[in-house]
């Protein structure tokens, strides 16, 4: 028994060896190291964190407003979607570059599985409206899909420039902001806008300025058709086309 006890208490020579292992870095035992990151790593890392938040907001918007991936453009659906988008965006600290990155991410299925142009446009508009920057440039000329509803409710003091074409409902409900599209804009541009300025460098579609309450629309190319305008001005190649004789009566109205 005595022998067994003494054997039990004897230090395990192998264990001792591990504990006594020489530390060749002993001098640095108390040195406080900090994880070194090169600036690019930090930028990439912080951008990814922000992008994740933005993506999450968009996915929640789809979950709430585009169940079964169908979204109908109606006055109340737009308002509702915008409110949902606002709710998520207010919690994110992002910059104008992040909005542009999000636009590109929309076309990468591994980043964002579903691109539904309506909610996407509402979400981008909300991002632009709540961005810190007063002037935002979105380089969308490489995008294969035209985003609808860009510039929705763009407030006074904001200037949004879009390089490339935009889809339907561009700049609707504009609230004093300045929207500039380098390419073409489709139908219902400036519908319901209250004030501000829309400049489309190339052509514009049908129903331009539908229920427009104020502001100005400048078109560098051709206006395919004007909508029922309440108040405001529309220029085609520097020539005032509204108020004035409506050259293109709306065949669908």
């Amino acid at each position: 028994m005595k022998n067994a006890c003494s054997k039990k208490n004897a230090p395990n020579p192998l264990q001792q060896k591990v504990y006594n292992i020489l530390n060749p870095f002993e001098e640095f035992k108390t040195f406080q190291f900090h994880k070194m990151e090169i600036p690019l790593d930090q930028i990439v890392q912080s951008t990814e964190v922000v992008m994740d938040q933005i993506r999450l907001g968009y996915e929640r918007l789809l979950e709430e407003e585009a169940k079964e991936l169908v979204w109908m453009v109606q006055y109340n659906t737009i308002i509702k979607a915008y409110e949902v988008a606002e709710k998520y965006i207010k919690e994110i600290d992002y910059s104008a570059e992040d909005i542009e990155d999000f636009c590109f991410a929309l076309e990468s299925p591994h980043k964002i599985p579903y691109l539904i142009p309506g909610p996407a446009g509402i979400y981008i508009s909300a991002l632009c409206n709540y961005a810190k920057e007063e002037e935002i440039v979105l380089k969308l000329s490489e995008l294969k899909t035209e985003i609808n509803l860009i510039g929705f409710r763009l407030p006074k003091g904001k200037r949004l420039m879009v390089e490339g074409d935009t889809g339907d409902f561009t700049g609707i409900g504009l609230e004093g902001g300045e929207l500039e599209v380098e390419g073409n804009a489709k139908n219902w541009t400036g519908a319901g806008m209250r004030s501000g300025k829309i400049l489309v460098k190339k052509n514009i579609g049908l129903h331009t300025g539908e229920w427009m309450m104020g502001g100005e629309i400048y078109v560098g190319g051709r206006v395919r058709g004007l909508g029922n305008i309440v108040e405001g001005k529309v220029y085609e190649r520097d020539k005032l086309v509204y108020p004035g004789k409506v050259r293109y009566p709306n065949p669908y109205y």
């Binding site: 530390n23 001098e27 640095f28 070194m36």
Partner: peptide, 16 residues
């Protein structure tokens, strides 16, 4: 120098 000292300090921590 900073990175090397960090690397040595990390080495020490691993040894501990």
């Amino acid at each position: 120098s900073d990175h090397l000292k960090d690397a040595l300090a990390v080495g020490s921590k691993i040894f501990q």
